[in-house]
Design a protein around this nucleic acid. Structure first.
Length: 181
DNA sequence: CTTTGGATCGTCT
DNA sequence: GACGATCCAAAGG
């Protein structure tokens, strides 16, 4: 189990996103394999929070690579993004789903009455299953309570590329920036 | 199985 | 004042 180095994140978002597949998310004694991600660009991407330039909420996206950018979705769910390339301004990868590996009892407790397969198969579900939120904003490589590690499993050689989920019309639906193994 | 509507509140206009 | 990078329960086939 090796923490990904900051160099891993400091690359174009379309390189980093598919390579996060099959990596392992670790937090609070729980772990899970990343099985769905989405890439978001910066000011040139109508689907991105950073589209209209920096705001108080999105300033983290304009910061250094290898940091968490957490945001509250629909006033209810915390969603976890990893900021990537400092050259591609304000790009980030949304972690959309993980497959539980360890700490499954804690996840069941955090998630309530759902089937095991539904414990962490959504961006809001996984943060609740792992029990973290806004407080992890900041450097994920050096000091974070939420880490991303490589356990030796290779990324898929040919990941599936599909449209991003939940974007309203005209938000660059032509960009197939959702990746699954 | 699919569809529908409610929850809920920070953020930006 | 409107709108989400969502989730879930309930209702209908």
């Amino acid at each position: 189990m090796i923490d990904l180095a900051s160099e891993f994140y400091d690359r174009p978002v379309l390189d980093v996103a598919p390579q996060l597949l099959n990596k392992v998310l670790i937090a609070g004694g729980r772990s899970g394999r990343i099985v769905e991600v989405e890439a978001y660009g910066g000011e040139d991407d109508p689907g991105s929070h950073a589209w209209r330039g920096p705001t108080p909420r999105t300033e983290l996206m304009f910061g250094p690579a290898g940091h968490w950018y957490m945001y509250l979705s629909y006033g209810v769910h915390w969603c976890a993004n990893v900021v990537v390339s400092s050259l591609d301004t304000a790009a980030a990868v949304l972690i959309r789903a993980v497959e539980p590996l360890a700490g499954i009892d804690e996840m069941r407790l955090a998630r309530g009455k759902v089937r095991d397969r539904d414990l962490a198969n959504g961006p809001g579900k996984l943060t609740k299953a792992f029990g973290f939120g806004q407080e992890v904003n900041g450097d994920l490589v050096a000091t974070s309570a939420v880490r991303i590690c490589d356990d030796g499993t290779r990324p898929p050689t040919r990941p599936a590329c599909t449209p991003r989920v939940g974007l309203s019309k005209d938000r660059a639906p032509d960009r197939l920036w959702r990746f699954t193994p």
